[in-house]
């Protein structure tokens, strides 16, 4: 009945023999790149739940008797193109970043940022166009969802500008903005500054943009096709 810690029981160590066992890969990974990847992955998972909830609410609401879709303002096509451009510019920026071409890198970063800002302005314009067409927020269920979906999506796009600004700042000063208390990060970065040093952060930034672009396309198609 009574069982003892056996050496064969893997993680529980070899207590019975007084042997020191530290399993390979046990803890202490503390790699800032992997850490950010996990954090961004988790963030995207939570955001997926936000948009999944919105889309399922849309689908449920759509099935109810009084559903009336709203016409979509044409400027959305332009906005979509702007978001695609922003996403593409961030992706394209990876190459000069690796090559150490700071000038090209920062140009592409600015292109991405400005395209994103233009997207936000465009979405605001779309709201005004909707209103001008006679579709206020409470006009039809479809119109309500248009405002709701663009608002929630737009806020997330705006949130993306925070890491974008940090990237720019880091590129300008040649190192990551100081984070008090983030000792491990400072230690592990090993002076890998300059354009190549921003590659991991840039990649995550690009992933975030691609994600929001994907979400936008899903939302747009949803509204367009129903």
């Amino acid at each position: 009945m009574t069982r003892f810690s056996q050496p064969s029981r893997g993680s529980r160590g070899a207590v019975a023999e007084g042997r020191l066992v530290v399993l390979p890969g046990g803890g202490h990974r503390d790699d800032p790149v992997a850490r950010s990847q996990i954090a961004v992955g988790l963030l995207l998972a939570a955001m997926t739940m936000v948009f999944a909830a919105l889309v399922s609410a849309y689908l449920v609401r759509m099935d109810l008797s009084d559903w009336r879709a709203a016409p979509l303002p044409p400027v959305l096509w332009v906005n979509t193109a702007l978001l695609v451009a922003a996403s593409a510019a961030l992706e394209a920026a990876l190459r000069p970043a690796r090559a150490g071409d700071t000038r090209r890198l920062s140009t592409l970063l600015w292109v991405a940022g400005l395209a994103t800002a233009a997207f936000i302005v465009g979405q605001l314009a779309a709201w005004f166009q909707m209103r001008a067409m006679g579709y206020g927020v409470a006009a039809t269920p479809g119109a309500s969802f248009f405002y709701l979906l663009t608002l929630v999506h737009g806020v997330h796009v705006l949130g993306g500008l925070v890491p974008w600004v940090r990237l720019l700042a880091r590129l300008r000063s040649g190192r990551e903005p100081e984070e008090p208390g983030g000792r491990a990060r400072a230690r592990d970065r090993d002076g890998d500054d300059g354009p190549a040093g921003v590659v991991p952060a840039l990649r995550l930034c690009a992933v975030y943009w691609h994600f929001l672009l994907g979400v936008w396309i899903v939302l747009y198609l949803l509204m367009l096709l129903t």
């Binding site: 009945m1 009574t2 069982r3 003892f4 810690s5 529980r12």
Partner: peptide, 13 residues
């Protein structure tokens, strides 16, 4: 098992 005797090291079953 109110602490009068030593515990037994039982991990599972």
């Amino acid at each position: 098992y109110s602490g009068r005797q030593k515990a037994e090291h039982v991990e599972d079953n």
